[in-house]
């Protein structure tokens, strides 16, 4: 909702999706950023799967951001895999996160151009 208020066009696909479904939706919708929310603790293998599938589909220029209960070591690992940003419960200022995402999307757009 906050993203919509900030002028984003949000494609919310729902909960409990497989990495394949997510990558497929990202491809079909032609998104600028993919956001994943994972609370189950299995963020590392899931994100790895999503990133690999995106690479295969030629979406490696689309930044991926992740939110959830993510310990700092895993955050480092996720970022090493290529995740653009990781948000945890301490990041409560949604508008600041939106500004962050705009910067990430713009950065990716400039790199592509």
């Amino acid at each position: 909702m906050r993203a919509r208020d900030c002028g984003f066009e949000v494609v919310y696909e729902g909960i409990r999706l497989t990495p394949a479904e997510i990558v497929n939706a990202a491809l079909e919708e032609g998104v600028h950023v993919v956001g994943l929310s994972i609370l189950s603790g299995s963020h590392v293998p899931l994100v790895r799967d999503v990133l690999e599938r995106m690479r295969k589909e030629g979406l490696d220029d689309v930044p991926v951001i992740v939110g959830g209960i993510i310990p700092p070591e895993d955050e480092t690992q996720l970022k090493a895999m290529g995740v653009a940003a990781v948000y945890t419960p301490k990041n409560f200022d949604l508008t600041a996160i939106m500004a962050d995402i705009v910067r990430i999307a713009e950065g990716a757009g400039e790199k592509a151009a």
């Binding site: 066009e9 696909e13 997510i22 939706a25 950023v33 189950s40 299995s42 995402i101």
Partner: peptide, 24 residues
């Protein structure tokens, strides 16, 4: 076959420039 607790919101930013800046 499945990511059990995995949700996505793929944000297509396409920000109207003004609104993005306002947001920031």
């Amino acid at each position: 076959n499945g990511a059990r607790h995995c949700a996505t919101s793929s944000a297509s930013t396409a920000p109207r420039r003004g609104s993005a800046r306002r947001c920031a």
